[in-house]
Amino acid sequence: MDKPLNQIIQNKVADFTFVGQKNIKVVDEVYEEDSYWKQLFKRIAKNKGSVFGFIMITLIAFMALLGPVISGYDFDEQIAGHESMAPRIPVLENLGVFDGSETLKTSTGELVVNKYETIEGGEEVYHWFGTDVLGRDLFTRTWIGTRISLYIALVAVIVDVFIGMSYGMISGYYGGKVDNIMQRSVEVLNGIPNLVVVTLLIIVLKPGLMSITLAIAITGWIGMSRVSRASMLKLKESEYVLAARTMGAKDISIMYKDILPNIFSQLLIMSMFSIPSAIFTEAFLAFVGIGIPVPMASLGSLISENFKSLTTHFYMIVPPVLVLALLMLSFNLLADGLRDALDPTMKEV
């Protein structure tokens, strides 16, 4: 047990030597006088994961825009007779997959059904992701839902950056009474379960995208403020901050110019994490019945909706779960790339 670990440590030592070499290279780059953003871009581009993440997000966003247009169905169009149809995709259907047939595990034995063969004119019908219990095209609904979830992701990051980060930094930086008052208020706000605050808000405002946005704005930033405060506490006593202060730098300038770049990476990761939690807040609201109003869809509400058919029509829950998971994976990989590019202490690793 000891040995492999020792090796690990040795590997680490090797890492450290490597570090030094790269540092020199960066100095060179500065001499080339590339702009800050150009450098950044170069560094991000070196990280395969982040490139993958970026491409996936672009692709998903692209599909969210285009998918509902090219599917040939409306997201709320209920086609009588088309209820609960399994996916059928041209070309692939010839290979024996996605040909619209599904196996129902009925209590009296397994039953293979293909609704495309039994409905009138079914030969010409294609539902790439299948249909839901009301006969709506899931391909269209998945991409419509992605739009909403991307919007919520955007709201979450904006709220995190503008409210959470500033709140935490100010609280941590000034400390003392300011910190005390700000932290007590956060505790009161956070101490009340989200569910109560959000439910109340939505019942009072009527369910809708606006109320969900507001609900996330009111409660979503608290986690971020905690992390940014903790980071601030760690850094504000460091030598370079003391140095900046002795040189007469203003508080705002110290916070945003000296400290922020050092903690931004960590905060960015945290804000990437608030994306799933925001999307889940929305999904949770859908679960208790006060999410995005039907027949509109979000990835979260699609999962909640199709969850009820998990043991009967498994294929229904797959597309939203897959898109959501892919979206999260991409955001995480991109976040990693961004951190590596932004954080001066870690860029060489």
Partner: peptide, 27 residues
């Protein structure tokens, strides 16, 4: 109730020109 209301909306709107139904779901 939610599924039934969605079918109601879809059918009323397609059979009655000019009538729009907005579903308001709540506890």
């Amino acid at each position: 109730a939610i599924n039934v209301s969605q079918v109601l909306k879809s059918q009323i709107e397609s059979n009655l020109d000019g009538v729009t139904i907005e579903i308001e779901q709540m506890p």
